[in-house]
Each structure stands twice: as structure tokens, then as C-alpha cells.
Simulated scan of single mutants.
Amino acid sequence: MKLRDELDLFANVVHVKSLSGLNVRHKNVDMVVIREQTEGEYSALEHESVTGVVECLKITTREKCRRIAKFAFDYATKHGRKKVTAVHKANIMKLGDGLFLKQCEEVAAMYPTVEFNNMIIDNCTMQMVSNPHQFDVLVLPNLYGNIVDNLAVGLVGGAGVVAGASYSTRCVVFEPGARHTFSEAAGKNVANPTAMLLASANMLHHLNLQHYGDMIQNAVDRVRTKDMGGFATTTAFANAVIASLKH
């Protein structure tokens, strides 16, 4: 959170896409989850007003709602995406989430070539599990984004196989797409490094080093750890990618 605040990494982007060869329920999933990550419940503004009573503040501002909405539509336009879905709980949080939804609607009017709809977070999670192919780009406030991107990566194989990135107006931080701690895999040489390696490929693509990014992407596509139905250890996976790059 300190890193995000210091660099103003307001937009977290996770491209959730099916990998070949994985035994998952839904095939050909391809969606982008865009999460505002500088306010909302994750502002960590809470206090114990009296003993046993805690108040947690959910901060929502027009400026940041509009900024993430515009980022989502700009992203959709740049990457040839057809639809943006705003996910919210404005039926209950009429002021906070209502403000987020209103800004998304106003920004959507500026992009007539991009389809826009909105969905309540409860329904979104149910629809994602049953029919993820209906989604293209999703834009969400902080907490909902955290929940949905973890759910989405689970559809394509888990947190270890999806890369993400966090954007500010002046820099980008490339990282795994879902922030889990794999304590059960620590020190056992079994952790899946796909997400981190794909994050490296995405960074090269961002720097217009397309050829080198593709080399890493293609190498990763050919190796499988045990959780992906293969036999490679973490070390063997890394060595195979290095060997492929040398070749």
C-alpha cells in the first residue's frame, strides 16, 4: 500500500486469459480486470470509537472515480476491446458506489464505439463463474477489484499463471496478477513462476521490445509445473526458459 501511495499507482490491470493445455472448466477466457487501488476500503482509515466498536471509512472521490473510468475506456480503445462493465454496489451504497457508477456513465458517453453496461458485484461474481465469456473489460472500485481479479484468475488456473501491472501517470510496476502468499510452496522448489515471468514479458512489450517479450512468452508457454499438469520444478522451469532464450 505504501508503494502504491508513493507512486500513485491508481490502476491495477490484470489480463485474465486461458493458457493452452490446462484442465479448467471454461476454455478461451479472455477478460481484463481494471481496479482502482488508491481509495475505498483499502484507504485503511479506521478507528475504534469506543471499546468494541470499530468505524472503517470508505473514501470515494469524484476525481479518482473519473480517472479510473477514463483509464478503462482508454485501455479498451487502445487494445481493441468492445465492452466495459462497471461493477458496483450502488443499490446499497447509493452515495459512494453511486458516485463511482455515475462517473463511469459520464465517461462512457465520451466513447460511443465502446459498449457500456454495469453490474452489481454480487451478480458479477455469480455470472463470472457460470459464464465468464460475457465479460471483456471490467472496471471496479478497490475492494471489489481485489475480489474479482482473484476469482477471475482462478478460472484460468490460479494466481500463479496470470501477470498484472499497476499504472500511475508516470510509471508502471509489473507484478503477478493476484497477490497471494504461497507459504505452503516456500522452499519446496514447486512454486509456479509463470506469472512473474509473464510480468517480465509484459514489461518488455511495454518498452516496445516486442521481440524479446515474445521470446519469454513463447518459452513460458512450452513449460508446465505440476499444478499445470506437467512435471517441472521451479528450477527446471526457469532453466527451460533460459535454455529456450539462449537457443
Rank of each mutant, 00 (worst) to 15 (best):
V50I: 13
T51W: 08
V114M: 08
I68L: 05
N23F: 11
V32L: 04
I59T: 14
V29W: 01
K83H: 07
A108H: 09
T77F: 05
I59F: 03
N91S: 05
N23M: 10
T113Y: 13
E55Q: 15
L22K: 09
I59Q: 07
K78Q: 12
F71V: 10
E39Y: 01
K70H: 15
S49A: 09
R25E: 11
E36W: 01
A109I: 10
D74C: 08
N117E: 15
E105G: 06
V32E: 09
V87I: 12
E36V: 07
F73I: 03
V29K: 02
G80S: 08
L101E: 03
A69W: 00
I34K: 11
E46Q: 02
L95M: 14
K89G: 06
L95E: 07
Y42H: 05
S43M: 09
A72C: 11
N28W: 03
V33C: 13
N23K: 11
E36Q: 12
Y42M: 05
E105T: 07
A72M: 01
T85G: 05
E46G: 04
V84F: 01
V33G: 04
H88P: 08
V53M: 02
T61G: 10
T60W: 01
V32G: 10
A86T: 08
L45Q: 01
T60M: 14
V33S: 06
Q37D: 07
E36M: 00
Q103F: 10
E115S: 15
R66V: 03
H88K: 02
N23E: 06
N118V: 11
F116K: 11
V53P: 08
K58M: 04
A69V: 04
V29M: 00
K102Y: 07
H26T: 04
H88I: 00
N28R: 14
T38I: 14
P112H: 02
A109H: 00
M119W: 02
R25K: 14
N28D: 15
L99R: 03
R35L: 06
F116E: 05
D97G: 12
E36I: 08
K82F: 10
V32N: 01
V107W: 07
R81W: 05
A109G: 13
L95V: 15
L101N: 03
T38Q: 03
D97H: 06
K94Q: 15
K94L: 13
E105M: 10
E55I: 07
N28M: 06
R81F: 08
C104H: 06
V50P: 14
N23Y: 06
N23Q: 10
E55S: 12
A44E: 07
K94P: 11
D30Y: 05
E48Q: 15
G52Y: 10
F100V: 03
C56L: 10
T51E: 14
Q103T: 11
E39N: 05
L101D: 06
F71Q: 03
A90R: 06
A108I: 12
G40A: 00
R35H: 03
G52S: 07
R62W: 05
C104M: 13
K82C: 12
A108C: 14
L57D: 11
Q103E: 13
E55Y: 02
V87H: 00
Q103C: 13
A109R: 13
R81P: 03
S43D: 09
V114I: 15
A44Q: 01
L95F: 12
G96R: 04
P112L: 04
G40F: 04
K70V: 12
I34L: 07
H26I: 02
